[in-house]
Nucleic acid binder design. Structure first.
Lengths: 355, 355
DNA sequence: TTGAAAGCGCTAACAC
DNA sequence: GTGTTAGCGCTTTCAA
């Protein structure tokens, strides 16, 4: 409430309820009004115990009355703790693109929840990697954040490693790799890709394709898993590198699949989004799913259950992921060390596969 | 790059390329190394013209070499300008819920792009309104941000108004209403609702329903527009208040629509998400869309074109919206006044309606 | 063109 | 318990 608003403050010790016109913008101002020192006000507002309960309450009431809020910049500067976590989404290989991948957006939402719950604010940065560590160090080195969360390694794994070597409070969503310095939380993408292809094969598919650009390591691993499964079965797997989440995706998928004599009967998709697009293209060209062509997605977005037919997909536990990332980050802020975590993906069988 | 890394810096004036082990964390540190004063370093790094070009370049090179970055908190405190915009999503009536509405998430992504482009950082807050202005004033009054963007008024219009009365740099996404103090950018929801119902009626629907909770004013206006159109045509419009974007949505829609003798032949949906869910329920119960029941969504998310059949919907120009919000906010930060804007929605006819 | 000095508003020792 | 003091690291007059 603004100074002068109707907040009558019943506890006030008998004085006029209207608030005088003094501007209270600083601790010192409030201290003057309260007849104490700035230090006491600071302690009272911070709820520190070393302050007389009565004065504390009086000061807090006064603060409310005048709509006073301590300046965070000053507070943070002095206490060398910002209470802010930086969240970065590297736009990596998909330049000029906006943050549009629904998986990342959902992860972002979950991270916002978790961070809020832990009392942190979230500073969001869109970063366009440029071959140097700069896009990340602009954030880690800014003095603005207590820690940094990176959403998606894309193809920046080495660069992130370089920063992680001297900046500890950093946790990344992505794919763990042997010898990687930075702490990664993510899905076991290779296993996910394998599950996907294995299920298609078990359902009778024999001519497999993988749909999705593999510049980012996460997707590359999904493909690798799928390829391994195909090889184990002595089957081919064609790679069709379509864009992951931008305007080109649709047309590219169309170009790849919209032929009446389509040769694939099993498609491993890099994401649910791609799968949905593929589903649509196949439908338009008169291919029946799953009878002519079977499809498996990746992510298990809420929408995956809503497609027609509902999508068989590989589930990533995104809520758990966010929780773990924030936990690990908090540990790292405390100076502890944390290990990476690859969470097991699960196959969710719906109706775009025969079984 | 960390101090001591391989950055050899060819321009260095003939000294050893290895960087000495002095810690350079502050302007003063760098000033000492450069043999100048802190003030000069500050000016040089800010690219101010009043500094000798040569010294400026020397200092900038040094800064790069030592991986020095000015502490933002200090800078912001001193310059009384944070370069940060707060973005708040009030979780309003859908308590205990996480940020999951894809429309808001997409808007958020667009805002991130626009703000980045304008040189601002974005501080994201999830807010749980509590009947007071507190959830908003915690942000506006924190001294952490130069301005605030609110995504979705929900049912908080009056409370936002109260804050806007004394906090100028505030722009809200939502529905404009007569006499509203705060600056709102959004779609003309009432008109959108009207378009939706009119199209259903023109396509032959006679027993209309509106699907969606109307606690938030945006949705309430959509319904009002639809109701007006129905009334003009002398037709009934039943309101079925289902959740907007959480786990309950699916079951609620199912409960509302999954009856073989369903009486509605035209459904105005509060969002594309609801429409997609409805589509699916109708399909499962054997109702043909659009032949038995016609559906119109709202938002025109990218996914709306991917459903089967593709969704007839009311398009909100979300990219334009974000652009306008940021523009207006910048104006308000400059002290100018800005008026609200209700953008005209457009009907996108696809295949969930008969024409 | 540069240096010196005075804060931005707050917190945390250290006294009393 | 509370006041006093000394900065956190930076920017910006004001002089030189």
């Amino acid at each position: 409430m603004a100074a002068g608003s109707g907040k009558s403050n019943g506890e006030d010790s008998g004085t006029d309820t209207s608030v005088p016109q003094v501007e209270v913008r600083t601790l010192a101002d409030l201290a003057r009004v309260a007849g104490v020192s700035a230090g006491t006000v600071s302690r009272a507002l911070a709820g520190k115990s070393l302050v007389n309960t009565e004065t504390r309450e009086r000061i807090q009431a006064l603060a409310r009355q005048y709509g006073f809020r301590p300046n965070q910049m000053a507070s943070k500067l002095r206490s060398r703790r910002t209470g802010v976590i930086g969240v970065v989404i590297p736009l990596g290989h998909e330049k000029r693109q906006s943050i549009s991948d629904p998986f990342f957006l959902t992860l972002l939402g979950q991270l916002a929840d978790q961070l809020t719950e832990s009392g942190y604010d979230l500073m969001l940065s869109r970063a366009i990697p440029d071959g140097t560590t700069d896009w990340l160090e602009r954030i880690t080195g800014s003095g603005m954040v207590d820690g940094v969360l990176v959403i998606g390694q894309s193809d920046q794994s080495e660069i992130i490693d370089r920063v992680a070597a001297h900046y500890r409070p950093l946790v990344v969503w992505g794919n763990h790799r042997e010898g990687q310095v930075h702490c990664v939380v993510g899905t076991d993408n290779e296993h996910g890709g394998r599950l996907s292809a294995e299920h298609l094969i078990a359902s009778g598919a024999r001519r497999l394709a993988f749909l999705g650009d593999t510049t980012g390591i996460e997707i590359a691993m999904r493909r690798r898993g799928a390829a391994a499964a195909a090889q184990d079965a002595g089957l081919p797997l064609t790679h069709i590198p379509v864009a992951l989440a931008n305007a080109e995706m649709g047309p590219q998928i169309k170009a790849a699949l919209a032929m009446p004599d389509l040769d694939y009967d099993g498609i491993v998709c890099a994401s649910d989004l791609i799968a949905m697009s593929a589903l649509r293209v196949l439908y338009e060209t008169g291919r029946a799913v799953p009878d002519d062509t079977q499809i498996v997605g990746f992510d298990d977005l809420p929408l995956a259950a809503q497609t027609m037919p509902p999508l068989t997909t590989i589930r990533q536990e995104i809520g758990d992921g966010a929780r773990v990332m924030v936990e690990k980050l908090k540990s790292r802020i405390e100076g502890e060390d944390t290990s990476s975590l690859a969470m097991a993906p699960t196959l969710i069988v719906r109706r775009t596969t025969l079984r």
